[in-house]
């Protein structure tokens, strides 16, 4: 099992990517681009949900990594 902090870092990375996609969707005036960004943001959001659970599980199993 990889180090919990690494997984956490990866999760944070993906969360910030999702936020970026959402802000791109808001910034653009092009309808097609807006839709694409919004859909991608949704997809990333869906993808990180299980990862979040995994992080919670790691924290539960190995409490010493909590709060990394």
């Amino acid at each position: 099992m990889p180090v919990g902090s690494k997984v956490k870092q990866c999760l944070a990375n993906l969360e910030s990517a999702q936020a970026d996609l959402e802000s791109f969707a808001l910034e653009t005036n092009d309808q097609a681009a807006k839709q694409l960004y919004a859909q991608c943001a949704q997809q990333v959001k869906g993808a990180i949900e299980p990862l979040k659970q995994r992080v919670r599980q790691i924290e539960h199993e190995e409490p010493q990594y909590r709060g990394y």
Binding site: L14, L36, C40, Q43, A47, Q53
Partner: peptide, 16 residues
């Protein structure tokens, strides 16, 4: 979990 998430992320990459 990791494989599924990786696949989803690659999906998004393919679209972008």
């Amino acid at each position: 979990t990791y494989t599924a998430t990786a696949r989803q992320v690659r999906d998004v990459l393919e679209r972008l």
